[in-house]
Each structure stands twice: as structure tokens, then as C-alpha cells.
Amino acid sequence: HLSCNPQAAQEWAANQKLSCDPRLLFFGRMLRKSSLDELPQLFNILRGDMSCVGPRPVVADELQRYGAASHEYLKTRPGLTGLW
């Protein structure tokens, strides 16, 4: 999709997200709208791996975007929602 659609490739390069992601099916859109896709995160909170409020977990490739502050980010337990 990205190789055939330069605008989508540019959006992906900037945000690592697509506003109209063709991989997302009807069921997935419904899960996201209802926030049920966050349910597994609740189990991580109950296990103590995550907190309710804190920075969202990121993959290693995204961590480079934090630059010199990445070590500060890693000291904090990830959360289900941010401070907002």
C-alpha cells in the first residue's frame, strides 16, 4: 500500500500511523471505536506490568524519536492512558 500510495507513505513516515489504514477490517474498527482493544492492557495493569496513567508503551524503533530523553522515558512504567 505504501509503495503504491506516496501520500500514505509520507503520512506513515511522519506519524507511524495511517488515517485510512487498509489493513483494518470492520471488526477491528468496531473494537477501536468501543475501546475494547484496550482490554488486554487492563490485564497488564492488574498484573502490575503497567500503570493506569503513564506514557504509552513504544516499540524499539520509535524510541529513537525521544532522543537524549529516551532513558527518562524507560524509567517510567507504561500506562493505559497519558496525563491528558
Rank of each mutant, 00 (worst) to 15 (best):
L2E: 06
L2N: 06
S3D: 10
C4T: 10
C4H: 06
N5Q: 11
N5A: 08
Q7E: 07
A9D: 07
E11L: 05
E11G: 03
W12R: 03
W12E: 07
W12D: 04
A13W: 03
A13L: 08
A14E: 13
A14H: 06
A14S: 07
N15A: 05
Q16T: 00
Q16W: 12
Q16H: 12
K17Y: 07
L18V: 00
L18T: 02
S19M: 08
D21F: 03
D21H: 06
P22I: 00
P22M: 04
P22E: 08
P22C: 03
P22R: 04
R23S: 02
R23I: 00
L24C: 07
L24G: 01
L24A: 06
L24H: 02
L25Y: 04
F26T: 08
F26Y: 09
F27D: 00
G28L: 06
G28C: 05
G28H: 13
R29P: 01
R29W: 09
M30I: 09
M30F: 13
L31H: 10
L31C: 15
L31K: 05
R32P: 04
R32A: 02
S34R: 03
S35H: 11
S35F: 09
D37G: 10
D37Y: 10
L39G: 04
Q41A: 12
Q41M: 14
Q41L: 11
L42G: 02
F43R: 09
F43V: 10
N44Y: 09
N44I: 01
N44H: 11
N44K: 05
I45Q: 04
L46R: 13
L46F: 14
L46D: 06
G48N: 08
D49R: 07
M50I: 06
S51P: 00
V53R: 11
V53C: 12
G54A: 08
P55I: 01
P55W: 05
R56L: 12
P57C: 09
P57N: 11
P57A: 11
P57Y: 15
V58C: 15
V59I: 15
V59Q: 15
V59M: 15
A60W: 07
D61H: 13
E62S: 12
Q64Y: 08
Q64R: 10
R65F: 14
R65G: 02
R65Q: 14
Y66G: 02
G67A: 08
G67R: 02
A68I: 11
A68V: 14
A69I: 01
A69K: 13
A69S: 13
A69P: 00
A69D: 13
S70A: 15
H71D: 15
H71K: 13
H71I: 12
E72I: 05
E72N: 09
E72D: 13
Y73H: 12
Y73M: 14
Y73Q: 08
L74I: 05
K75F: 09
T76G: 01
R77H: 03
P78F: 06
G79R: 06
L80W: 03
L80Q: 03
T81F: 04
G82D: 13
G82F: 10
W84Y: 09
